[in-house]
Nucleic acid binder design. Structure first.
Lengths: 213, 213
DNA sequence: TATATAAGTGAGTAATCACTCACACACTGA
DNA sequence: TCAGTGTGTGAGTGATTACTCACTTATATA
């Protein structure tokens, strides 16, 4: 089942047909891309008249944005939940790598249950300034500050190299995202041992590929 | 100037108008995406009648594939140039990190002079099986074997952790690609110290973010 | 029950799309 | 000089597109 659809159903109060429209749009757009999916197709798959789509969304792009922005916000969500930041500073995590584990595991599961949506975000991010704005805002206001605090904390504990936070974030985050892209999009059918893969990922993030002499 | 255009001009023998078509197509598609770029637009920018495009390419998609496949082949090119493999085994590189430096630097410069083309590849890869095939073939036949040999070589020298080659490749390559995406696509306008960034990247790949105790 | 508002419909529309084709031109070799 | 071939043209075509609108139906409120 789909986390995000559930969330949309509750937050905004949508009609059953509206939910069907969103469900159909997610399916089709993640398969074929935004520009290659027509509103008539979405209507057909949703079992709805084409006019109904435009009753709820002024334009096709408004529909896309409505689908995509909650994904961006929620993918970054745990970063600015008080619970998360609290946990770090109440030192529920003895070591940085323990925090990394919980963090990656958590986001991994989120990705797993929202693959089509994440596909859409990645594909359309490049073309739609509206989506880019949402992404930049979340990153600047939420992700970045949370990361900053956390990195400082573990630097003081002497667990991290003395690289600028910004550099660290810039190198760690794409590594994690790249890992998930490989796992869910490039080679989804390989039989993965996810637990082991996540541990290896953390090993490499913490200690690199070089041998310790 | 554009590496790849020059290469196309020489390999196939193209008419001047054909070159203009490709140049215009690269510009427009990298800006707006394949489906959002019309053939009439390409013709207009190229200073050519729309019919001329279809004189040379049976379909619009054939034009896309013609543009994209040489990029894929050439981005992976150094991996299977004998020169490169030779260098490694004649131990022109004392350490793995020296090889990494030359490799990343080289591919970095390639990316820099072919940003629009790489943008197109990344965006359209998801939707066109023809492009995926080209990508898979190059990776399987060229990139992977070359990497394999190289990693074994430095493992025996005791410079690398004892992780499976496949795992290493799966963690190193996305890190490098992620670095370039940040550099050229997400934050192209930031004033980067490229040399320093590449060195930090290698430090992290080799030794991770953790401090050495 | 009467009325207002929201949700849903589907035929219709102007614009745009990828692609065609009959024709014009330039060059080559005989 | 003439046929043959490759290159270039642009008006034309049927299909498809996002979106509209006059209309019906359902729901809520008074």
């Amino acid at each position: 089942m789909n986390d995000m659809l559930e969330l949309l159903r509750n937050e905004k109060n949508m009609t059953p047909k509206q939910i069907e429209i969103i469900r159909a749009a997610i399916e089709l757009i993640s398969e074929k891309g935004y520009y290659n999916t027509s509103t008539s197709e979405i209507a057909k798959r949703a079992g709805v008249a084409e006019g109904t789509i435009f009753r709820h969304y002024k334009t096709k792009k408004e529909l896309l944005v409505e689908i995509v922005t909650p994904v961006i916000t929620n993918f970054a969500a745990p970063m600015f939940a008080e619970k998360f930041v609290d946990q770090v500073f109440r030192t529920d995590f003895a070591h940085f790598k323990d925090l990394m584990y919980v963090f990656i595991k958590n986001r991994f599961e989120f990705a797993q249950s929202n693959i089509p949506l994440l596909k859409i975000v990645m594909q359309e991010l490049a073309f739609h300034p509206e989506i880019q704005d949402a992404y930049k805002k979340v990153f600047k206001e939420k992700v970045y500050p949370a990361f900053n605090q956390t990195l400082d904390f573990y630097k003081e504990k002497g667990e991290l190299q003395n690289l600028p936070n910004e550099t660290m974030i810039r190198l760690i985050v794409p590594t994690i995202i790249g890992f998930m892209i490989t796992r869910f999009i490039l080679q989804p059918d390989k039989d993965w041992d996810d637990e082991a893969e996540i541990r290896k990922l953390i090993t490499v993030i913490m200690g690199g590929v070089g041998s310790k002499e």
